[in-house]
Simulated scan of single mutants.
Amino acid sequence: MSVHQQYALDTYRAAQRGEPAPPAPGLHDWAAVRELRDYRRFEAVLAGRPARGRIRLALARLLPAGRRHRAAGC
């Protein structure tokens, strides 16, 4: 059974029982991905590892180790 067939069946059952329809498949996928990213960052901070963003990672790849500038407070 495909995801869409299961959704149609669940929607039909909910209508028969007078319950609200379930959310459409894929509706909250990006929110789940963001939650996972935030959770991993939080776990990294608790473990004592700095949470690194995309910009810092890109600069670390582009600049040689001796030329990296570390601003005060970072």
Rank of each mutant, 00 (worst) to 15 (best):
Tyr12His: 14
Gly53Ala: 00
Asp10Cys: 14
Ala15Glu: 09
Met1Leu: 14
Ala24Glu: 13
Arg37Phe: 07
Val3Tyr: 03
Ala24Lys: 06
Tyr7Leu: 01
Pro25Val: 03
Thr11Asp: 04
Arg67Trp: 15
Gly26His: 00
Ala47Met: 03
Arg17Ser: 11
Leu9Met: 09
Ala21Asn: 10
Leu57Val: 00
Tyr39Met: 06
Ala44Cys: 11
Glu35Cys: 12
Arg37Gly: 03
His69Pro: 09
Arg49Phe: 08
Ala44Asn: 14
Ala21Phe: 10
Arg52Lys: 12
Pro25Gln: 02
Arg34Ile: 04
Cys74Ile: 10
Leu62Cys: 08
Val45Phe: 04
Arg68Gln: 13
Pro25Phe: 02
Ser2Ala: 01
Tyr7Thr: 02
Leu57Met: 02
Phe42Cys: 08
Ile55Trp: 09
Ser2Gln: 01
Pro20Cys: 09
Pro20Leu: 08
Arg61Asn: 07
Arg67Pro: 10
Arg40Trp: 05
Ala24Asp: 04
Asp10Gly: 09
Phe42Asp: 05
Ala51Tyr: 02
Glu43Thr: 12
Gly53Trp: 00
Arg70Gln: 14
Ala72Thr: 15
Arg61Trp: 09
His69Gln: 14
Gly26Ser: 01
Ala31Asp: 15
Ala65Met: 13
Arg49Cys: 10
Leu27Gly: 01
Glu19Ala: 08
Ala60Asn: 05
Trp30Cys: 06
Arg56Gly: 10
Met1Ile: 15
Arg67Lys: 15
Arg68Phe: 10
Pro64Trp: 05
Ser2Trp: 01
Met1Asp: 11
Arg67Ile: 15
Glu35Pro: 06
Arg56Lys: 13
Asp38Pro: 02
Glu35Phe: 09
Ala58Arg: 00
Ala21Tyr: 05
Gln6Cys: 04
Leu27Glu: 07
Tyr12Thr: 13
Leu27Ala: 10
Gln6Arg: 12
Pro64Gly: 09
Gln16Leu: 12
Ala31Gly: 14
Ala15Asp: 12
Gly53Met: 00
Cys74Gln: 13
Cys74Asp: 11
Arg41Glu: 06
